[in-house]
Amino acid sequence: MNPAVSRWNDRFSATDDYVFGTQPNQFMVRHAGTYIQPGMRVLAVADGEGRNGVWLAEQGFDVWSVDAAPAASEKARRLAQERGVQLRVETADMSKWDWAAEPFDAVIGIFFQFANPKLRAELFEGMKRAVKPGGVLMIEGYGLKQLEYKTGGPDIPEHLYTLDLMKSSFDDMDILLLEEYDSDLNEGAGHRGISALVDLIARKR
């Protein structure tokens, strides 16, 4: 296990509570019904303890929930069992994931900002490959203003998102939504308080 994954695994295993809560991300909830339909195959990238993957499964999606930390995957399975839903939970390093192995109707990545610029570019390209033509990507992350708020996320500017970064990274897709705004998050102990967010939804041509 590489050191970065080990740190996250320790964080998830240090408590029986869910570090980022058990409620789904509100950006995803707000837009899922508009851009994806129940029955579609969805990949939840770096899904952590499963709050988003489990919610998607509750809505009738065919979900793959993937995270590199074994402790996170264990919690995702537990949450799915408690909620009475089925989803595929896989422990895998997304930097080594075979993005072309399965076609997905949607790929969703929420706050996977452990990635430095090089790895982030690789993940973005991989996520594009994993989406079927006509399928969508949904990504939410922290913007640079988050360095002032300090209510979650990394304190490394290069790991944060800007509108220009997202435009240039996904200029080969049809960008359906791209916005930057502040919002009050309440996602467990890990994300709580006023936060600077950047949201992207893009469709593969």
Rank of each mutant, 00 (worst) to 15 (best):
V131M: 10
M138K: 10
G152R: 01
L119A: 13
L147S: 03
F114G: 10
G135C: 06
M127H: 10
A130N: 08
H159T: 02
P157H: 00
Y149A: 05
K128M: 06
A121V: 05
A115S: 11
T151H: 13
Q113R: 02
K132F: 07
V136W: 15
N116F: 04
M127F: 09
F124H: 14
R120Q: 03
L147G: 04
M138V: 11
D164Q: 01
Y161N: 00
L147C: 05
L123Y: 13
G141T: 05
F114K: 10
Y161R: 01
V131I: 14
E122H: 11
G143R: 15
M127L: 06
A130K: 08
G153R: 02
Y149V: 05
P157V: 01
L119M: 12
L144I: 11
F124M: 04
P133T: 13
I139R: 09
K118E: 14
G153P: 03
F124A: 04
G152N: 03
T162F: 00
E125M: 09
T151A: 05
K128L: 07
L137A: 11
V136A: 10
Y149L: 15
A130D: 05
G153I: 02
Y142L: 11
Q113G: 02
A115R: 09
E158D: 04
L160P: 06
L123P: 14
V136H: 15
L147V: 03
T151E: 05
N116M: 04
P117A: 00
L119Q: 15
K128G: 08
M127K: 10
M127P: 07
A130L: 05
G141F: 02
I156Q: 15
P154W: 03
P154K: 04
F114V: 14
L160G: 01
K128Y: 08
Y142W: 11
T162Q: 01
F114Q: 11
Y142H: 15
L119D: 14
Q113V: 00
P154Q: 04
L147I: 04
H159D: 03
Q146A: 02
N116T: 06
K128F: 09
D155T: 12
L144D: 07
L123K: 14
G135E: 08
E148C: 07
K150N: 12
A115H: 11
D155H: 10
G134L: 08
P133M: 07
E122L: 14
P133Q: 15
Y142K: 10
A115Y: 14
G153N: 02
L123R: 13
F114M: 12
I156H: 14
A121H: 12
G143D: 13
G135Y: 08
N116W: 07
P154Y: 03
G141Y: 05
N116D: 15
Y161G: 00
I139H: 11
L163R: 02
Y149R: 15
Y149M: 10
M127I: 05
G143M: 08
G153T: 01
D164P: 03
R129E: 13
E122P: 08
K145M: 10
P154C: 03
K145T: 10
D155K: 13
P157T: 02
P157D: 00
G126N: 06
M127R: 08
G126E: 05
E140K: 09
A121G: 10
K118V: 13
L137C: 08
G152I: 01
V131T: 12
Y142T: 07
E148P: 13
T151I: 06
L119I: 11
Q113F: 02
K118T: 13
F124R: 09
